[in-house]
């Protein structure tokens, strides 16, 4: 099995890597690019912990081949906000105590950011359905949904 050479863009940086033909993007990110923010909770697209965007579209990186990333633009949680300048979603999740163990949090952030890009003013129901593929076993989702909606309010420039 010979490796495939892939040139892509991850979090704004041009990146090259070699991967096995059957290696999924999640494994490439974690094992080859040292970006361990995306997690493997299931490996079958059922939990959302490995959420990333490709060309702006939200996907489960466990169900994408690394080779498919050729020429695409990929964003992971590591590309959202920074320690000095958190994205409003990150800040609101912290302020609402919307994480307990935190293992689903990167996926939630990536997915919620994609939601707000498409729908800056989601209803609670819309947020819940959009995030239905992001399993969280700790929080019961209450504080997560509140944090997403209040981040949305802030991002629209309205008062919470």
């Amino acid at each position: 099995m010979s490796k495939i050479h892939v040139t892509t863009n991850v979090n704004g940086d041009s990146v090259e890597f070699l991967c096995e033909p059957d290696e999924v993007l999640l494994d490439v990110l974690r094992d080859r690019l040292n970006l361990t923010g995306a997690k493997e909770g299931c490996g079958t697209g059922d939990c959302g912990a490995c959420s990333v965007t490709i060309d702006g579209r939200l996907v489960a990186s466990c169900l994408v081949l690394g080779a498919e990333a050729e020429g695409r633009v990929i964003e992971t949680v590591e590309g959202i906000g920074s320690a000095k300048d958190l994205h409003p979603l990150q800040r609101h999740l912290l302020e609402h105590a919307a994480l307990q163990c935190g293992v689903c949090t990167p996926g939630i952030i990536v997915a919620a950011k994609a939601l707000l890009a498409e729908n800056p003013d989601p209803t609670e129901e819309e947020a819940r359905y959009w995030l239905a593929g992001n399993l969280c076993r700790c929080t019961g989702y209450d504080k997560i949904i509140r944090a997403v909606l209040s981040a949305a309010t802030e991002m629209r420039g309205e008062n919470a």
Binding site: T36, I80, A83, L86, Q90, L94, L99
Partner: peptide, 8 residues
């Protein structure tokens, strides 16, 4: 530990 958990 919050910052580390929201930044991956």
């Amino acid at each position: 530990d919050g910052l580390d958990k929201v930044t991956g």
